[in-house]
Simulated assay, not measured.
Amino acid sequence: MKISRLGFNLVFALDIVAFVIASFATTLLTNYLNVGWQAFVGVSLFCTLVYSVIRWLMLAPERALLLAHRSLADKVTDGALAYGVCDLYNMQQQADQERRNKDTQTTIDKAEVMRLAANSGASYLSVGLNRHWPNVRRRLAERVTFKVILLDPSSEERQLRNTINAAGEREDSKLQLGDIIRACNDFPELDVRVASRGMTCSVFITQNEAYFDPYHLAADGGRISNRFLCLRLVKEAPKEGISNYEMLSRHFDTLWAASTPLDQWLAGNGDVRARLPALKSGRVSLAGT
């Protein structure tokens, strides 16, 4: 709801008139007319009511905006909470990035099982980036299983993303296969697979929480920043359908079944394998199938 400039000026004038009349009436009743207190109270209440209505009209744009925001917030909150959304991070804002990283590390520290599907997994597995790797390493050392699915660096999807990034990367600079292979050699609890398709988002899942980051191809300064909205989800039992946590869990399971174990993928990509540390043969994974 909007109010015109002329309408605003008229209401503003009424505001002044109401103030003058109220002041005059109060002075008249108290100093010149011999009236009872009931009449004085009645006139005062009437003036207060008129003044309140006028002020309400003057605040029409702000009032409408406030009500619209509250209505939208209620709709978003009610719909999201019912399906397990417990937090939202705007990854274009530094404060939200830091909050999301801190929350993710807390989730890792409490994890009993971990699952990750991502283009590169750098935030979790890159020693150089060192964002979540110290927390992940500690949990792996405590024999917490970690299933990881990465996007095949030779896939069409990966190549498309590389051409959009600055200077047209031939290889994904974030995919640190050397770090990943060394981690696999050190921790049998880490089981890594490679997927050539279906990587529409990044998901990190534990026994009761999940983080969802959708992927896109929008370039920002010559690179795909992928700074969109991130959702934090918990297990829920909605009245209709399935929870968002369950949906992401099923997404991961489907992708896991369609992906290739890292040792098999390396065997079929000898040129890549030649530049990397050797993956221990006969390595037995505790992460299951």
Score class of each variant (00 low, 15 high):
residue 43 V to Y: 11
residue 134 P to A: 07
residue 203 V to W: 09
residue 10 L to P: 03
residue 38 Q to L: 05
residue 129 L to Q: 13
residue 283 R to A: 15
residue 87 D to V: 01
residue 193 R to E: 02
residue 37 W to Y: 11
residue 214 P to H: 12
residue 29 L to G: 11
residue 267 A to T: 13
residue 229 L to P: 00
residue 178 G to W: 01
residue 172 D to N: 14
residue 144 V to A: 00
residue 199 M to K: 05
residue 48 T to C: 15
residue 157 E to Y: 07
residue 21 I to G: 09
residue 26 T to I: 08
residue 41 V to L: 13
residue 159 Q to S: 03
residue 75 K to H: 03
residue 264 Q to T: 07
residue 44 S to R: 07
residue 209 E to T: 04
residue 46 F to R: 05
residue 89 Y to N: 12
residue 125 L to I: 08
residue 68 A to V: 02
residue 14 L to V: 02
residue 176 Q to S: 09
residue 155 S to T: 07
residue 71 S to W: 07
residue 168 G to F: 00
residue 193 R to Q: 03
residue 20 V to K: 06
residue 37 W to L: 11
residue 56 W to G: 04
residue 53 V to Y: 08
residue 74 D to P: 01
residue 223 R to L: 10
residue 232 R to E: 09
residue 94 Q to R: 12
residue 251 H to G: 02
residue 259 S to I: 02
residue 140 L to I: 06
residue 196 S to C: 10
residue 234 V to D: 04
residue 81 L to S: 10
residue 266 L to R: 14
residue 116 L to W: 06
residue 250 R to T: 05
residue 62 E to T: 07
residue 217 L to K: 15
residue 246 E to M: 03
residue 117 A to R: 06
residue 220 D to V: 11
residue 241 G to T: 06
residue 286 L to W: 14
residue 41 V to N: 11
residue 219 A to L: 02
residue 220 D to K: 13
residue 196 S to Q: 12
residue 277 P to R: 07
residue 273 R to N: 09
residue 180 I to G: 01
residue 17 V to W: 10
residue 43 V to W: 12
residue 24 F to W: 14
residue 224 I to R: 14
residue 208 N to V: 00
residue 149 I to P: 06
residue 206 T to Y: 06
residue 186 D to Q: 15
residue 97 Q to M: 02
residue 153 P to E: 04
residue 153 P to H: 05
residue 212 F to W: 15
residue 247 M to F: 14
residue 86 C to M: 08
residue 149 I to Y: 03
residue 216 H to Q: 09
residue 81 L to M: 10
residue 173 S to N: 05
residue 224 I to E: 13
residue 11 V to Q: 12
residue 234 V to E: 10
residue 39 A to M: 12
residue 43 V to Q: 12
residue 241 G to F: 08
residue 81 L to N: 07
residue 215 Y to Q: 06
residue 26 T to P: 01
residue 60 A to Q: 12
residue 211 Y to I: 04
residue 261 P to R: 09
residue 287 A to H: 12
residue 246 E to H: 09
residue 187 F to A: 06
residue 206 T to D: 06
residue 273 R to P: 02
residue 205 I to K: 01
residue 49 L to N: 05
residue 125 L to R: 10
residue 13 A to D: 02
residue 181 I to T: 05
residue 40 F to E: 08
residue 175 L to D: 03
residue 93 Q to C: 09
residue 144 V to K: 00
residue 288 G to C: 13
residue 233 L to H: 04
residue 65 L to V: 04
residue 95 A to G: 00
residue 31 N to D: 13
residue 247 M to G: 11
residue 268 G to A: 12
residue 276 L to A: 06
residue 192 V to K: 05
residue 18 A to L: 13
residue 150 L to I: 04
residue 95 A to F: 00
residue 128 G to I: 08
residue 56 W to Q: 06
residue 16 I to N: 11
residue 113 V to I: 13
residue 240 E to V: 14
residue 227 R to Q: 13
residue 25 A to W: 06
residue 113 V to S: 14
